[in-house]
Computed example of a mutant assay.
Amino acid sequence: MSQTVDRALSILPLLAEGPANLEQVAQRLDVHKSTALRLLRTLHEHGIVHRQADQRYRLGARLFALAQEAMENLDVREIAHPHLVELNAACGHTVHLAVYEEDEVLYIDKVESRYPVRMYSRIGKPVALTVAAVAKLLLADLPEPERRAVAERLDYPRYTSRSTPDAAAFLAELATVREQGWATDLGGHEESINCVAAPIRGAEGRVVAAMSVSAPNVVVSADELLTLLPRVRRTAEAISADYVGKPIRPAERDTP
């Protein structure tokens, strides 16, 4: 039975490349046509594959519906939380998880620092879009026209002397973030608070959430916090792998 399941599943990557006829499926599986036909008929009955009028087979609508339903039911917070706790235990600093929803970037999880000085942030609270590291990651992944439209309609408060001054500067920073795959906020929102962040990616490599480590200068300097970046990125990659069920690579990027 396991061999039958393995063969059936091997058909799906072939059909993902485009429609294929019975002979092509049999050759890919290295089985007789009658065996390939039995597998295709079973998958067809369940809507996983569809037989076209030209007798070639393609992936069926039921497969896409199941994939969509599964993605909608994934809870990135639930998947990420153990990883955030582990990172917090290792470094001691505040760890955040954020998502982009309805033109806002919101914190959806937070693990508090072990140090007496605490962050004022809270779950459900919007972040400062033009300076927050998690916001930069989430906005940098938007398609170029949407990214530009968002940047041009934002206000640019001068929280500190390091705050992003205008749309042109913001778009330039988003291009850098998009290219390097990580972001920082080094005193852009509060002079005394620094942050490093990394993206969490979904099945197609798009950024579905962002996580960060933040700490005040009285606890750790900006340079010392930046030494945690490799670990932050590894944590984000581990969350991404759990989220999609396997290691992934970044999506193909459009031109910034």
Rank of each mutant, 00 (worst) to 15 (best):
Y100W: 15
Y107P: 02
A128E: 11
A133D: 08
L129W: 11
R122I: 04
E102R: 09
K136W: 00
A132K: 00
A128H: 09
T94Q: 11
A128K: 06
V111W: 01
T130L: 04
A128Q: 08
R118M: 13
E102Y: 10
V111M: 12
G124V: 01
A98G: 13
V99I: 03
Y120D: 08
I123W: 00
E112K: 13
A135Y: 11
L129E: 05
V99Q: 02
G124T: 02
S121G: 10
I108T: 00
P116T: 10
E112A: 15
E102H: 11
P126G: 04
A98K: 01
L129D: 07
D109A: 05
V105C: 07
V117C: 10
R122Y: 05
K110R: 13
M119A: 13
Y107C: 04
V95E: 09
S121M: 08
R118W: 10
L106D: 03
Y100P: 08
V95M: 02
K136M: 08
A135T: 10
V131L: 03
V134D: 10
R122F: 01
Y107H: 11
Y120A: 13
P116N: 09
Y107M: 06
V111N: 14
A132E: 04
V111Y: 00
I108V: 02
K110W: 04
Y107N: 09
Y107A: 06
Y115I: 12
E104P: 05
H96N: 12
T130E: 13
E101S: 13
M119K: 09
K110V: 07
E102D: 13
R114W: 15
M119C: 13
A133L: 01
V111E: 15
E102Q: 12
I123G: 06
A132Y: 02
I123T: 12
V131N: 14
D109K: 00
V134Q: 13
V105R: 03
K136R: 13
A128M: 07
L97A: 01
A132W: 01
P116K: 06
D109Y: 03
T130S: 14
L106H: 11
E104C: 03
V127D: 03
Y120W: 14
Y107L: 09
E102F: 07
H96R: 00
E104I: 02
L129R: 14
P116A: 08
D103C: 07
V95Y: 02
E101V: 14
G124N: 05
Y115N: 12
V131Q: 07
P126K: 00
V111G: 13
P126H: 05
K125G: 12
V99T: 06
I108F: 05
R122C: 13
V131C: 12
V131E: 06
P126D: 03
E102P: 04
P116S: 08
T94G: 12
I108R: 03
P126R: 01
K136Q: 11
R118P: 08
R118N: 12
H96E: 00
E104T: 06
V111R: 14
M119L: 15
S113M: 05
V131M: 03
L106W: 08
